[in-house]
Amino acid sequence: MNQAPVSCIPNTSKMSKTKKVLEESREIQNPELDLADKGIATFEEMPGLLNMLYITRLTLSHNKIKNVPPGLANLVNLEILTLANNHLEELPLSLSSMPKLRILNLSFNRLYGLPRGFGAFPMLEVLDLTYNNLSEKTLPGNFFMMETLRALYMGDNDFEYLSSDIGNLKNLQILVLRENDLIELPKEIGELTRLREFNVQGNRLTILPPEIGNLDMISNKSVFRLDGNEWVTPIADQLQVGISHLMDYLRSETYRILYSRYLTNKPEIPPPCIDKAKKISRIR
């Protein structure tokens, strides 16, 4: 459905519409700029955008943007940047120096990696990386240094392992790892005491570190999604009865012993369960 190559014939009606939106925005100094679904392929189609320093929100979802110019970081007042559903394959390093950026949506793109030093955002609170091609091998070293993060969406990527540095994200309330290839979870997730949404649906997990039992996942404000994994029988049994039973079980002495036995005698790693070849993000 998504046509990859950009058409050679300039789509004049869309082009003019983009410019019109920009002009109107400038006239009333509107701090929120909506350019979703305008067929934009490059930033050159948005002349003067990088000088509109007053804007606090920029929405460019559902376009065909491949590259973000480093100059975007000139927009120092930007708090919300939405680039969902574009054709991004890489990002400029300058992005992470944006001083006020709080919400960054990069979901449904074609990112295979993130620039070195990406984790330097001073204020980032919500980072949406859903549906890309990221894995532990392509994350920059300082990725888990974004202590201000309260929501991290990494569903539909290619992670097999998660760094133990995740424990640094002390303010994390939402962590989505749905439909990756996760084989195990680090025990440091148990340190994320403020976590109230945790989704590991559709991975290759077999066991859980007992430290997960420390998380408050049974209050009515918490959502813990675990289905679609290859859990060992005791975990699968507890899950059948309910999350609260599972959490009690993870804290029990029985499980502690069982877990250390699993660590020395690891359960077989299940094969990847989702065929990712069909993912749009794979298009090169």
Partner: peptide
């Protein structure tokens, strides 16, 4: 999806295989 709200227009623009899943 992932406990985030998406308007109908956006949802319909999501990849078909994703929506199927």
């Amino acid at each position: 999806f992932d406990l985030k709200p998406a308007c109908k227009k956006c949802y319909e623009k999501l990849p078909i295989e994703f929506r199927r899943r």
